[in-house]
Design a protein around this nucleic acid. Structure first.
Length: 787
DNA sequence: CCCGACTGTCATTGA
DNA sequence: CCTCAATGACAGTCG
């Protein structure tokens, strides 16, 4: 079974990949995340533990979701775990390939696009990361700002993106490996699916894999054809030409959902940027900020660029950071990619995030390698091509400044910030935060001579600091996020579930729906079988209402039916129907290992009984030898069942164990039983209940562990998401600063004194007052902290 | 034979 | 006081 399961699981994964390639999206994550318990079980493996919740079955059937984590059977649990791990590993493994593919694609497409369409834009800087990310955005930016094109060098950054492309081949190779599926594999997948469907799991379960597939598809497709790139873009945009719903790379959520979210994020980013600007700047009114205009532009434009960004990064990382685990790097990249995928709709966000991610990655692992790629661009983007794409704006703005200082840029910002802030030379400088800005901006030479090209503001110090801070954490976060796409809501659900965990509550803990479903499934399976009806009834007795128990009484014929046995039946039906069929004949065979205890052993347990020894099993074996004829009968019977039989107990162990106390006492009263029989019955009842309790307890433990694991994953994903948002905010802020700078320059250059002469930027600066007025004030020497 | 996993059982505790 | 569930600990079985 395990082998088959494993084999099927692998096949399913491949199948999901195929589906993703075809355009069908399967979101495994959602299921894994507990929302769809059945799927989760399928993926994890039909662990008996989930299937077994016998007791609760009756109660929870109404809930709709049957599978309960508490299920007594844990036998397949580890198997499921292993499968899940494999799936996750597949993600990781596939992810790199996918990323690589995307990178190549984007690169090619972007490079081509940038060169062709944006040739005018890409004036100079290799640093024009933004352009790469948002080629469209840059033009929009221009239009919005109204500043001269020369002032916006962002376009130049686009050209830099092209630099990143080398790894496309590798990606394709990896991808090819994933894609290879034989007909046999497909058949196996189909079989597995059927099984899964039978179990109640939907194909949606595989969304997670689909995401991977999608990513792979997207990436590879670009390689193949530019047209594909366009298709991918459409996907990202949330419009699936194929009809499949767009799904976030990270969470596997449908893009439509993300879009709104993205919009919200962008708005937030803008607000945050404004706040930051206000904090640094004396601006009285937000309206002055170009940001609002910029963000929308970015959003619209970024989609295509974002993908491209992702691609370049992947290639760079491997070569750049041999020291780091390739796996981890890939995971990071994957996480970034996922984040970008989620943000696909929001181009601006993607570009920002990508840039940030790249910077973070670079800072940690390979600053040098990244820099090489983005040498022209900002240092932040070093690691990841994505970063380059996003960051370029800054670099573009101040290519000259950065180029010499690439290495020190990350460091300098923090130090410079204080200086700038301290120096009140110009509010603008402080707002931009970057010393470079002050120098570049205000410095008369630069501004006057080559303001257009170089004037773009460098990332302000606050950005650098933020980036640096976030960057360090981002990688880890991204890795975490990579593992599973969890939404915050899911995470919260997990937490809630965990909180609610109690012995029985475990069911709910997994997922509101899952537990009930699992149980229902078990019950249904049991009911389906001929004998199942009795089992289900009695099995449920312990937890079910008395009325249910009463119905169970009809079964007395069954000798040994424990609830455990019932649970096993559920499992059996679930996992191996063939086994189940045999059970009915056995009449309530218990789940026990079928200790071959002799009848005498039963007595031993009771002090009253003649035999009382610690080692029951040994004696049992001996007795079994003595009484071979009973072995067959006892084979499938638990010790207590055998004891009961030996003691000639007139009713089944199942009743003894599951009947309510009242009914149990009545039952005892009906029959005239000896002390030994009564003692045995009580022991049977005690042990039977304790056995179930132990099973529940163990199941609960497992569920708790699983939930904790999921909670950790959710938290990681949330962290990654937050980091991405942070990066996006930073990017937006950066863009707003750039725009602000350009506007500042534009205004400043048009200012004339009484004599009609322009004010020298080195001597004068514009200051924004809280009331929104702008004043031109002489610049203090201190202000020019520039090198 | 050893080891790990699984399971049952016992004793205890608390509701 | 009884019943029951939960749980740690122990031991047996099995692969």
């Amino acid at each position: 079974m395990l082998y088959l399961k494993k084999y099927f699981t692998e096949g399913l994964i491949q199948f999901t990949i195929l589906l993703s390639l075809i355009g069908v999206r399967v979101d495994v994550d959602t299921y894994l995340s507990n929302q769809l318990p059945p799927l989760r079980e399928i993926i994890l493996g039909p662990s008996s533990a989930y299937t077994q919740t016998q007791f609760h079955n009756l109660r929870n059937t109404l809930d709709g979701y049957g599978i309960h984590p508490k299920s007594v059977d844990l036998d397949h649990f580890f198997t499921t775990r292993r499968l899940l791990n494999q799936v996750r590993q597949l993600d990781r493994l596939s992810v790199p390939s996918t990323e690589l593919n995307t990178w190549l694609v984007h690169r090619d497409s972007e490079t081509v696009v940038s060169t062709s369409s944006q040739s005018s834009i890409t004036l100079d800087n290799g640093a024009g990361l933004e352009d790469v990310n948002n080629p469209d955005a840059t033009p929009a930016m221009r239009g919005g700002s109204g500043a001269p094109e020369s002032t916006y060098n962002l376009n130049a950054a686009d050209s830099s993106l092209g630099a990143v492309a080398p790894e496309g081949n590798q990606e394709q190779g990896s991808r090819d490996g994933n894609d290879d599926l034989t007909k046999e594999d497909i058949d196996l997948i189909d079989i597995l699916w059927r099984q899964d469907i039978d179990l109640g799991a939907g194909r949606e379960v595989f969304n997670y894999s689909n995401r991977q597939k999608e990513s792979e598809e997207e990436k590879p497709s670009p390689h193949e054809n530019k047209d594909r790139n366009e298709e991918q873009e459409s996907w990202r945009n949330g419009v699936n030409l194929q009809g499949a719903q767009p799904v976030d790379g990270e969470t596997g959520e449908s893009i439509p959902e993300q879009l709104p979210g993205i919009g919200s994020q962008t708005s937030l980013s803008l607000q945050e940027c404004l706040r930051l600007l206000e904090a640094t700047f004396p601006f009285g009114e937000e309206s002055e900020f170009p940001a609002p205009v910029v963000t929308p532009e970015i959003v619209s434009n970024e989609e295509a660029p974002s993908t491209s960004q992702g691609l370049p990064l992947a290639p760079q990382l491997p070569p750049a950071e041999p020291q780091l685990d390739l796996e981890q790097q890939w995971q990071d990249i994957m996480a970034i990619m996922e984040l970008q995928a989620m943000e696909v709709n929001n181009t601006s966000l993607q570009s920002n995030s990508s840039s940030v991610d790249g910077t973070s990655g670079t800072t940690e692992s390979n600053p040098g390698g990244n820099f090489e790629l983005s040498t022209g661009s900002t240092p932040v983007n070093q690691d990841v091509s994505l970063h380059q794409a996003s960051l370029p704006s800054c670099s573009q703005d101040f290519p000259q400044m950065f180029n010499p200082q690439l290495d020190s840029i990350s460091i300098t910002p923090r130090t410079t910030m204080p200086r700038l802030s301290s120096s009140n030379s110009s509010n603008i400088n402080s707002t931009f935060g970057a010393t470079n800005l002050t120098g570049i901006f205000l410095p008369p030479h630069i501004n006057s001579s080559s303001n257009n090209i170089t004037s773009t503001p460098i990332l302000p110090d606050p950005f650098s600091t933020l980036l640096e801070e976030s960057m360090l954490d981002e990688i880890s976060l991204l890795d975490l996020a990579m593992e599973e796409g969890f939404s915050q809501a899911q995470a919260s659900q997990l937490e809630d579930e965990l909180d609610s965990d109690s012995g029985l509550s475990l069911d709910s803990s997994h997922s509101p729906a899952s537990p009930s479903s699992s149980e229902t499934s078990c019950s249904s399976a049991a009911s389906s079988s001929s004998t199942s009806a009795t089992f289900s009834e009695e099995g449920a007795v312990g937890y079910s209402t008395d009325s249910e128990v009463a119905t169970a009484e009809t079964e007395e014929g069954a000798v040994g039916g424990y609830q455990p046995g019932y649970s096993k039946l559920c499992r059996m039906s679930y996992q191996d129907p063939s086994q189940f069929h045999g059970l009915p004949q056995l009449d309530g065979i218990s789940h026990n290992h079928t200790y071959n205890l002799p009848l005498s052993s039963a007595f031993s347990e009771h002090p009253e009984l003649p035999i009382s020894t610690g080692k029951k099993t040994v004696r049992d074996k001996q007795h079994s030898k003595l009484q071979p004829h009973q072995d067959l009968l006892d084979k499938h019977a638990s010790r207590d069942e055998r004891r009961a039989r030996a003691m000639k107990i007139p009713f089944s162990n199942e009743k003894i164990i599951n009947l309510p106390v009242e009914e149990f006492n009545e039952l005892l009263a009906k029959h005239h039983l000896s002390e030994a029989q009564l003692a045995l019955i009580r022991d049977i009842r005690r042990r039977g209940k304790n056995k179930m309790a132990a099973q529940n307890c163990r199941k609960r433990k497992l569920d708790t562990i699983i939930n904790l694991e999921q909670g950790v994953q959710d938290l990681r994903r949330d962290k990654a998401r937050l980091l991405k948002e942070k990066m996006e905010f930073i990017r937006s802020l950066r863009q707003m600063k750039q725009k602000m700078q350009s506007l500042y320059q534009e205004v400043f250059t048009q200012l004339r004194d009484e004599e009609g002469r322009p004010y020298p930027p080195s001597e004068y600066s514009l200051q924004y007052s809280a009331d929104g007025s702008v004043l031109i004030t002489p610049r203090r020497d201190d202000c020019r902290a520039e090198p």
